[in-house]
Simulated scan of single mutants.
Amino acid sequence: MMSRRDVLAAAAAGLTTAPVAAGPILRADDAGFSAVVDSGAQLRTLYSGGRWCEGPCFAPALGGLVFSDVRSNRMLVLGEDGEARTFRDPSNNANGNTLDAQGRLVTCEHRGRRVVRREADGGLTVLADSYAGKPLNSPNDAALGPDGAIWFTDPIYGITVPDEGIMAEPAQSARRVYRIAPSGGIAAMTEALDQPNGIAFSPDGRTLYVSDTGAALKNPEGARAIYAFAVTAGPLPAPRVFATLEAGVADGLDVDEAGRVYAACVDGVRVFGSSGAPLGRIATATAAANVAFGGPDGRRLFVCAGPAVHAIDLEVRGARFA
């Protein structure tokens, strides 16, 4: 048995194994967080069999919540019965997903280095795979614009991170945000960010939010902010910093009916007011990669976090369900 002196010495050295109480799932940083989520709301795990779950998109016409398991090179759909079924296997290391103005699924593919649209018969139409005659880097996430255009981010993760695509040197000179017009055709909208990642629009469509994840590439001094762009017909003007993180990066984004921004972060989902002020956090056991609103009334927030997909019912609806 250890003597009292030994116990004290071990404690001083940090060697004791006393259990540490788990922190709360919900943390309020502002009184406004109570309008977002009830204090008794529970975060439920719907699926836990993935490697790196990403790109949640609520699509009832396709069977429920469509999501990507990027590193397993497949896509699944999670039905209301709780069953996860194969949607695409292989998926070209698919990542972000969104619905277009006609409700068709649009998917960013790392391995294909392209953005594709799923047609009614299950076939795929390529919307973008190059810019200025050169292959894209690795389309990451997408959002539907107010005029029916599809906007997407194009960092380099799918060509530099093993298991997320095919390793290659970037063909593009910058990591950009692109716009695919409703009639077709791709335009570069900005190259102001290091590694543009998550993307979402404000409810009125006048502001575009993009997370910059430059700090994720083993660069502690890299970008770790969410930026806001005023949406214009041509190339976007210089952005303003919407919110910053003291550690980690913000990945996928979504927006609710009141313009609050939800960001998938290393410690869960951070919620920011429309001004950028931090409102609170919904903690996850593993780093959150992406978020999406859905459910029967648009109030369910789905969270992809490592091997798992979680859900929590909120007091507010997602912007596209308002």
Results as ranks from 00 to 15, higher is better:
residue 81 D to F: 00
residue 46 L to Q: 09
residue 92 N to K: 09
residue 53 C to N: 13
residue 18 A to D: 15
residue 203 P to N: 04
residue 145 G to P: 09
residue 278 P to K: 00
residue 90 P to K: 00
residue 213 T to C: 03
residue 42 Q to D: 13
residue 75 M to E: 15
residue 160 T to Q: 12
residue 123 G to A: 15
residue 17 T to M: 14
residue 316 V to C: 06
residue 167 M to E: 07
residue 177 V to G: 03
residue 257 E to Y: 00
residue 56 P to S: 06
residue 299 R to L: 08
residue 65 L to D: 03
residue 93 N to S: 10
residue 196 P to M: 00
residue 134 K to S: 15
residue 140 N to W: 03
residue 42 Q to R: 14
residue 81 D to L: 05
residue 162 P to F: 10
residue 133 G to L: 08
residue 291 V to S: 01
residue 13 A to H: 11
residue 283 A to H: 11
residue 247 A to M: 08
residue 230 A to D: 10
residue 299 R to A: 08
residue 275 S to W: 04
residue 174 A to R: 11
residue 102 Q to R: 05
residue 42 Q to T: 11
residue 56 P to D: 00
residue 97 N to I: 07
residue 133 G to Q: 07
residue 140 N to G: 08
residue 322 A to I: 08
residue 316 V to L: 05
residue 17 T to K: 14
residue 301 L to N: 07
residue 112 G to E: 04
residue 200 A to I: 04
residue 108 C to D: 06
residue 6 D to G: 10
residue 219 N to F: 05
residue 286 T to P: 13
residue 264 A to H: 06
residue 81 D to P: 11
residue 193 L to T: 02
residue 238 A to L: 12
residue 131 Y to T: 12
residue 149 A to M: 04
residue 302 F to T: 06
residue 26 L to M: 15
residue 315 E to Y: 06
residue 234 G to Q: 12
residue 123 G to H: 12
residue 218 K to A: 10
residue 255 V to A: 08
residue 10 A to G: 14
residue 164 E to H: 11
residue 33 F to P: 07
residue 17 T to A: 13
residue 205 G to Y: 07
residue 176 R to P: 11
residue 267 D to G: 06
residue 227 Y to A: 00
residue 220 P to H: 06
residue 256 D to Q: 07
residue 249 V to K: 02
residue 129 D to Y: 07
residue 132 A to N: 14
residue 190 T to D: 05
residue 105 L to R: 03
residue 273 G to F: 00
residue 70 V to W: 01
residue 113 R to L: 03
residue 183 S to V: 13
residue 301 L to K: 06
residue 197 N to C: 07
residue 162 P to G: 04
residue 182 P to K: 02
residue 142 A to V: 09
residue 301 L to I: 10
residue 45 T to M: 13
residue 254 D to R: 03
residue 8 L to Q: 15
residue 113 R to I: 12
residue 114 R to T: 12
residue 155 P to M: 02
residue 247 A to V: 10
residue 215 A to R: 01
residue 228 A to D: 02
residue 254 D to L: 02
residue 116 V to I: 14
residue 183 S to G: 15
residue 315 E to R: 10
residue 95 N to G: 09
residue 288 A to I: 07
residue 54 E to C: 13
residue 47 Y to R: 11
residue 189 M to L: 13
residue 115 V to T: 10
residue 308 A to C: 15
residue 285 A to Q: 10
residue 273 G to H: 07
residue 170 P to N: 02
residue 304 C to E: 04
residue 281 R to T: 12
residue 206 R to E: 13
residue 58 F to D: 11
residue 86 T to I: 08
residue 42 Q to H: 14
residue 277 A to F: 04
residue 104 R to F: 12
residue 97 N to D: 01
residue 268 G to A: 01
residue 258 A to V: 12
residue 234 G to A: 13
residue 296 P to M: 00
residue 168 A to C: 10
residue 244 T to W: 00
residue 151 W to R: 02
residue 229 F to Y: 11
residue 153 T to P: 05
residue 222 G to W: 01
residue 193 L to R: 01
residue 295 G to D: 06
residue 160 T to I: 14
residue 224 R to W: 01
residue 9 A to T: 12
residue 105 L to H: 03
residue 109 E to W: 04
residue 295 G to H: 06
residue 137 N to I: 08
residue 135 P to T: 01
residue 299 R to W: 09
residue 51 R to T: 13
residue 84 A to Q: 09
residue 3 S to N: 03
residue 21 A to C: 08
residue 112 G to Y: 04
residue 180 I to E: 03
residue 46 L to I: 12
